[in-house]
Amino acid sequence: MNSLIFRTIAPLIVAVMLVFSVYVCLRGHNEPGGGFIGGLIAASAMAILGMSSGAAEARRALRIDPLAIAGFGVFIAGFSGLLSLFTGSPFMTSIWLYLELGQTSVPLSTPMVFDIGVYCVVFGTISAVALALEGGEEEP
């Protein structure tokens, strides 16, 4: 895809998509969205990056092995469920903390951590697959 126009505009689009994906992920608890959709959008961004500037370049931009990101996602998702061991309740019981930051209170909760885990898994896996298919080469 050696098109100057595409290569120039792609990083911009990718950046917008990544921001959008995080936004969709974080507000998923209250409006449509969530970790899965967010992850898909982010992975699409990676796919566009891969198509515009090549898989190797995209991998370099990502820095971390995408599959490891996926592993990390499952890990923290499981970990967020394990936390309730300390509260004397069953697996995956949600724990909510409200952080007081000045005037607003920011909710921190295990479901949110869980959703971030989902995001990581989807992002990592789909990016890995898309980049592998794109690059034609084995991962480094």
Binding site: A68, G71, V74, F91
Partner: peptide
Amino acid sequence: VLPLVLCLMGAAATLMLR
């Protein structure tokens, strides 16, 4: 539930360590 969670998290960890 621990056997299952251990397996899942173990799989995730081995993937990260691979």
